[in-house]
Design a protein around this nucleic acid. Structure first.
Lengths: 219, 219, 219, 219
DNA sequence: GATGAATGAGGATTCATTCAT
DNA sequence: GATGAATGAATCCTCATTCAT
């Protein structure tokens, strides 16, 4: 193993200004998302991405200085979608159950495009130095949103911070269920969705560890 | 050169008979598990595995016909550990809460050795042709065990089959929470464990989708 | 890693379109022919071929999916040369003796470029699946040409088919003599050529096995 | 390419004295001959030879210091067989035709055991330094024998040396025909043998290049 | 002597990346 | 800007050979 000196490059070598450029970048990111989701990071090659995108390998490198920066772009794109779902959830006044149903439905929807992509992205360590903060920002808002959901459900707006662990557990659980379903092709199953909603509601609706049997429901 | 005979390779090229062989194989699998967990499949190289295991690359290939077969061996080893945990859970007479606590504690324990390994293994499509059934067998027993837990908790031994989706959701959720925790280093946190136990109990203790608020617990 | 798709590879991975490509492919095939002839299949390495051709190893694999496909390309190239010689023989009206002399001279000429190449190529089993028919086609025309020579010499144009064994013996004998000469460096010797012509003429001129002594035996 | 320093080793590291040793060596040489003939030099591996011979790789190296020395042993063995055939030919008083028939029959017989072996051996450059003289000795006697045949046929015992080129052409032709037949599985064909005998007789019976039509035999 | 586990140099092949056109 | 031919470091894997048991 030699010493890697991966000088942090700017995520994008050149900003696409013209329409054609934007279309090219779009095609590359789309193709990349597909291949990354289908084949995993091992199996993700810039040459194939260019092929599938219908552009030359040279063009790909015109917009992305290296492979990792393309992965980062795909990540940003996907995570933006995820956040968009979460931001769109709980906006209007709605019942806690409805809130959870919206959230779950939205998460299933984002994962339906590239079922395995999210999971793969979680595995790829975000590049440190440059866009690291980008991923950090995502994580931050992501957890915030989950905390908001927790608080909204429990109707205690104030203690969002207190629910940190709960939010983490919740996000992990939702991701886990969706990824498992994505893996075995049951992502569209209504039962799955219903059970996931149930689980989230049960968890959030519970009084917590003081009363695990749930014999006496919370008032 | 010579004639290629790409017959479906058995996972092991040669069964280790002597003590030295067994130690070598053990070292390779251990090193492999570590590297696979640390770097993911994309950063998993046989040369580094051999290096870390302290054996020559030739020795590695004496026992594993190719890289994938080593991954399979690691998979089998890890999945066996997971199943061992599950088999050891719920054996004796215990309260449902205790059952879940044992399960969660066990799952956390298996993942504490190679925190990311399980997640990576889930991503690597098991080789089809040969050991594919091995993974199938694991999945099968794995889901069975979860169904048993569900039934045990709900005290309805009979309808284990009915809880198929519940078991799937449950296993996905537990995996998701643990993998998330493994990723951000909170795997040993007591709060995490407590919340995970809570979530499982809440989910299993609930009456299901007819009563999401859990106002009236099941008797 | 990734999914292996070992579809029967076409002999050429990519058709050279630009002038530079064609020059590269040409250089590779030339260098390959030389090395294959000089060192035999066992000493034929793609890295050395690339070196001698003055291109990078990557370029070699850009045009030839694997080592064997390069060997096939070399084979096709050489066998085409051989057939060209045979096609050019016996075209115009000429005496049987002249026919044989042309044939022998031509065969010596083709083998003078890479003396051992033909012999090596005979040893390398042509890849079955794809170009196998290519070699079959060669063998077919090759034997046809020899049958034509036999018939032309014997002036019995009609029974070309009847001379199948004769053609086979003749081609084997000519090849054998030339290969032996190539091995010991006497390929350019006029005596060798004269004797080979003599042998062929004697064989073809004979009446056949009914009269082995050839009319009047030597005392 | 690095500098090869192939210190000439004695062909056999240790002379087999005991019965078991001799049997081991015999098994190795037999297995080696088979594999060398079947797979060619590329594809001939010491490990497989040991496997097929039923001995350990260590034992193989006990008797043969390296791979080449095993090939040399196989060569010597085969060439001895060839010479034995030639020595057994023409010993007793017999007609020229009979002489040729015996020769051809004998050559076909030796090649029937390992049809491709001889051809492969011709391709493997004999090791220079050590046993090179062994091969030289073979070549020498081999050509001598052919010259004897030529002389015997032509009944001019004295000028064996004069027939050098004729002997070379003859040996090359016979080898070529037999190798071709070996390759396409017609080695046992009676027509092939008859035609080969015819060819040799025609060639040797002819007057030479002054009279290619063979109308007037030499006096 | 025999064994076979271990070694590691060497050779096939891939793929990120560059650059001449 | 776009193209795709060329590059070569990195990786997988083989096999001749050694040596501890």
């Amino acid at each position: 193993m030699s010493t890697r000196i991966p000088k942090p490059r700017s995520p994008m070598r050149k900003e696409p200004r013209q329409a054609r450029s934007r279309a090219t970048v779009e095609a590359i990111v789309q193709a990349g998302a597909r291949i990354l989701g289908d084949r995993g990071l091992a199996g993700f090659t810039t040459n194939e991405v260019a092929d599938v995108a219908g552009v030359s390998i040279g063009s790909l490198y015109q917009y992305f200085p290296d492979k990792l920066s393309l992965v980062e772009a795909i990540r940003r794109r996907h995570l933006d979608d995820v956040l968009a779902v979460m931001r769109g959830t709980g906006e209007v006044d709605q019942s806690p159950t409805q809130l959870v149903e919206d959230l779950v439905a939205g998460m299933i929807a984002v994962h339906s495009i590239h079922p395995a992509l999210h999971r793969v992205l979680l595995d790829v360590a975000p590049r440190h130095g440059g866009s690291s903060s980008a991923h950090g920002a995502f994580e931050s808002e992501y957890q915030d949103r989950y905390r908001t959901v927790v608080a909204a459900y429990r109707n205690r707006k104030g203690d969002a911070a207190a629910g940190g662990v709960v939010a983490q557990v919740l996000s992990g659980a939702v991701e886990g269920v969706i990824h498992t379903a994505a893996r075995n092709g049951t992502l569209q199953s209504p039962e799955l969705k219903r059970e996931l909603v149930d689980m989230v509601c049960a968890y959030l609706g519970g009084t917590g560890h003081g009363d695990r049997r749930r014999r006496s429901p919370q008032v």
